[in-house]
Design a protein around this nucleic acid. Structure first.
Lengths: 136, 136
DNA sequence: ATAAATAGGATAGTTAATATCTTATTAAGT
DNA sequence: ACTTAATAAGATATTAACTATCCTATTTAT
């Protein structure tokens, strides 16, 4: 449960209950928007204020512990920063699926064609997930 | 100048001066956030209201004439919907570059590995553009 | 156990976006 | 061109999203 303590310590951030609760909750959800996150945390920490939530999320993003996920037509979401992956967004059920796929060839094409030095990439695909597709 | 009249007509939307001004401005900028857009349009149409701007942008998006561009760490931007392309975002100069690149192989990999039926994709790459890189 | 540093919570204040209502404009038919 | 029905614009108010400030509480190193 406290694996995030080390993560915080590594960035010289204090391990407050609130921060750990935020990280646990986001980790549990995978991706989550601010309201869902707030509602879930308030269950355990009724005193948690939205200011604290926003403040921490922004701090954690600036230390690259969290990252924002901006999907078209959706509220901004947040997730624990992990191995680079892409997002599959189903237009039927609204679910967001993570997928780990080799993007190097694409990045290399882009890099060599444009002279752009890529540090990271963000890929979203819209469509219909396997489950919803089979239901139709 | 009035190529957008046909576009609007095709969606049964009236060709108001405001709509044409919005489309022209967005077309001119390539990508633009709401405030830059508003400031630029107010020059020509001092009576333009922000409500009208937001309303029209949302209408145009729902008719697939415009699309939103959500980039990490940036305000939401808008652009004319055109041939699918990816965005290269320079962390030095802040510029957003369009690039037309073959993404089919990637999409096919994703599709076959996940069973996800992709309708469209959204790709952003962060890094340093050629110009800024050469300056260093 | 103490103290300095940092974070939390409450509140107020911005900024972003939307809803409502009245007036104005567009576009189709005459 | 004139009329009219449909739709859009503009003004305003309202809601929602986010941030800043200030004072108190908690954390952590000693």
């Amino acid at each position: 449960m406290d694996r995030f303590k080390d993560v915080l310590k590594a960035s010289n951030l204090k391990s407050t209950h609130q921060r750990l609760a935020i990280l646990d909750a986001i980790d549990h959800f995978g991706h989550v928007d601010i309201d869902t996150l707030y509602d879930s945390i308030v269950q355990k920490y009724p005193t948690m204020s939205k200011a604290t939530l926003y403040r921490n999320i922004n701090d954690l993003i600036s230390f690259h512990i969290l990252e924002e996920v901006k999907l078209p037509q959706q509220k901004q979401q947040y997730e624990i920063k992990k191995v680079p992956h892409i997002h599959l967004l189903c237009s039927e059920c609204g679910n967001v699926e993570d997928m780990f796929v080799e993007t190097k060839p694409l990045l290399e094409t882009v890099s060599s064609q444009s002279g752009f030095h890529i540090s990271n990439s963000f890929i979203v695909m819209n469509g219909i997930c396997k489950t919803c597709y089979l239901k139709q």
